[in-house]
């Protein structure tokens, strides 16, 4: 089986104990809805990864074109005791993906955090504001090109005074 819930199934299956599917970005919500109808009754986690400086093989199936961002959701079916991870590729020039709020209202805080930290916009989200950083903050801290700032270290012999 190479397709599940209309999405490509992960190259390595299962991936370290858990099933993985790679829905296309525009089918993100549909795949989640199909999984929900199939018994995955809770959205446990939603996060993102910025693969900007990733140096290793992404281990994606051949059909999936890698993009800079990846939105990752963890679903669970309590009845079957089964987990499912959804990974969607999100391009840097259009970092948007549909919200899962309508399927699980619990996506609200998780998606706000992903927006706050990665600048990925969830279309249709009821409150697309920042959650951890101050409201007037600029930039998205967990992006790999975010300047983290430094504390100057005063060593007598330090040549790299910053």
């Amino acid at each position: 089986m190479t397709h599940r819930y209309g999405a490509v199934v992960g190259a390595e299956q299962p991936s370290r104990g858990q099933a993985v599917i790679h829905p296309e970005r525009w089918r993100w919500c549909e795949a989640a809805a199909a999984a929900r109808a199939d018994g995955f009754d809770q959205l446990l986690d939603l996060t993102a990864v910025d693969y900007l400086t990733y140096n290793a093989d992404r281990q994606l199936p051949a059909e999936v074109a890698p993009e800079r961002f990846e939105v990752v959701a963890a679903l669970i079916s309590h009845q079957r005791g089964e987990r499912l991870r959804m990974r969607a590729q999100v391009p840097a020039d259009d970092p948007t993906v549909a919200t899962l709020f309508d399927l699980w209202p619990g996506a609200e805080s998780l998606e706000r955090e992903v927006y706050d930290m990665f600048g990925i916009v969830f279309e249709g989200h009821p409150d697309g504001s920042r959650i951890l950083m101050p409201e007037d903050w600029s930039g998205h801290p967990l992006r790999k090109d975010y300047d983290t700032g430094r504390i100057p270290v005063q060593f007598k012999a330090a040549s790299n005074v910053r």
Binding site: S15, D57, R85
Partner: peptide, 8 residues
């Protein structure tokens, strides 16, 4: 080794 993993 490269890869991703989730543990709960």
């Amino acid at each position: 080794p490269p890869g991703e993993a989730y543990a709960a």
